[in-house]
């Protein structure tokens, strides 16, 4: 019972914070809402008893990604005076319709499907199981993912760095 209450609090929180991200007029506010939303997702992982992923979520999103986003925001501030700029494009009303459409489609699909298996309660996923899968069965993709990160790192540096004469 307690779990359900906690779940509902965090679910509504995630939705509210996500709505804050996409509706807020200030980019800084949006970024802060995003931190909250991502942290809420981490809590969801805890409720789903996948603590390892929750930790990863906090570390990577809460730590790395959000900091990166904030840095980028600061580097790309067009107007340091903070004068209000139009944050939404001209197609925003249609975007709202599209978003509602996506939500409707997804909800209909998710709720109308008869899922095979135990849909009532989650099973505990032990960290040992994850490590076993990750390092044994998915060993090669894991290594490739590390290569991908390296490539992205190098690529990002090359794209973003100040070239001579610029």
């Amino acid at each position: 019972m307690a779990t359900e209450v906690i779940w509902w609090i965090f679910a509504l929180g995630i939705i509210a914070l996500s709505a804050g991200v996409v509706f807020s007029r200030s980019v800084i506010h949006s970024a802060i809402f995003l931190i909250g939303s991502l942290a809420g997702v981490g809590v969801m992982f805890v409720i789903l008893t996948v603590e390892f992923l929750a930790l990863t979520q906090f570390l990577i999103y809460g730590g790395a990604v959000t900091v990166l986003v904030l840095l980028a925001l600061m580097l790309t501030r067009a107007d340091p005076s903070g004068r209000a700029e139009k944050v939404n494009g001209p197609q925003a009303p249609f975007a709202l319709l599209a978003g509602i459409g996506v939500a409707a489609v997804l909800l209909v699909a998710a709720l109308s499907t008869e899922w095979a298996g135990n849909t009532e309660s989650p099973t505990n996923i032990a960290i040992e199981a994850i490590s076993q899968r990750l390092f044994e069965d998915f060993g090669l993709p894991f290594i490739l993912a590390s290569v991908l990160l390296l490539v992205a790192l190098v690529g990002a540096i090359i794209v973003a760095r100040q070239e001579e004469g610029e």
């Binding site: 197609q91 249609f94 975007a95 599209a98 459409g101 996506v102 489609v105």
Partner: peptide, 8 residues
């Protein structure tokens, strides 16, 4: 937008 509408 076109992508989203296509997906829908």
């Amino acid at each position: 937008m076109a992508v989203a509408l296509g997906v829908i």
